[in-house]
Design a protein around this nucleic acid. Sequence first.
DNA 1: GCTTAAGTTGACGTTTACGTAAACGTGATG
DNA 2: CATCACGTTTACGTAAACGTCAACTTAAGC
Lengths: 134, 134
Amino acid sequence: MTIHSAKKKTTYSISQLAKHFDITTRAIRFYEDRKLLSPERHKSHRIYRESDLVRLKLILRGKRLGFSLEEIRKTMELYDTEPNEKAQLVFVLNTISSHRKELELRQEDIRNTLDEMKTVTHRIKKKLQELDGT
Amino acid sequence: MTIHSAKKKTTYSISQLAKHFDITTRAIRFYEDRKLLSPERHKSHRIYRESDLVRLKLILRGKRLGFSLEEIRKTMELYDTEPNEKAQLVFVLNTISSHRKELELRQEDIRNTLDEMKTVTHRIKKKLQELDGT
DNA sequence: GCTTAAGTTGACGTTTACGTAAACGTGATG
DNA sequence: CATCACGTTTACGTAAACGTCAACTTAAGC
């Protein structure tokens, strides 16, 4: 287990990354194939830096939120570029705004689900107390 | 467009249901195939009642939250049965509790994402003001 | 330097969630 | 009652996101 390092620039192998995020190396290579990652290479071997860790974190969070890899790629690309032309800046603002509304809807979904869970949980606990009472 | 009704018991055809939820009839039949729905039949034709509407709503919300149809089926089955034996009740409680933790993690994911969005939005708006100022 | 572990690139397989087309049955309507 | 929209089953196709070999290269430890 050798951690590549040069001048405090910590780097990771693909299997180290996989272990850290509890995913397979296949998945990581797949994300690269889909242009979500682009690590350095040392004679064909992939070398991951901190920035790649951040990106991978974002990828996995995006997946947990149900976004496709393509959507995640576009979003990261959007945040990466940060243009200077007014039109582009406005476009980014609008895109983010639309994503935000999406997420707020999901938040509502979760809130409603959690509420229903609480109701059911309460009902079941009452039922259990009745069973204990008899 | 005939709405089947008998004694105020409103029912719907598959295409009415599809239109209402903005999905395809194929999707609805697929959910039935996967045992998430089981509508009545009138000589091979599917007849949907209010309870089916509720189930379909739950299915679509589950999907938005990123759950697989199989997970959704199991969950609905869980909520449907409501057993009376103590062991089963406790099992249901634990399962719900675990789902709840899952959802709370997603909630955290969303909160973090929204926070980051706000930061970026703020930065871009500042940049726009600078551009307007010059 | 040799063995062994780790990494690489194809390439085909798999699961999920439908899309799509064919071929046929049913039901309302002029 | 003929027609035609709507519904049904069957079955093959598809996109996404990897899993799983296979065949080969590179790196690491002794």
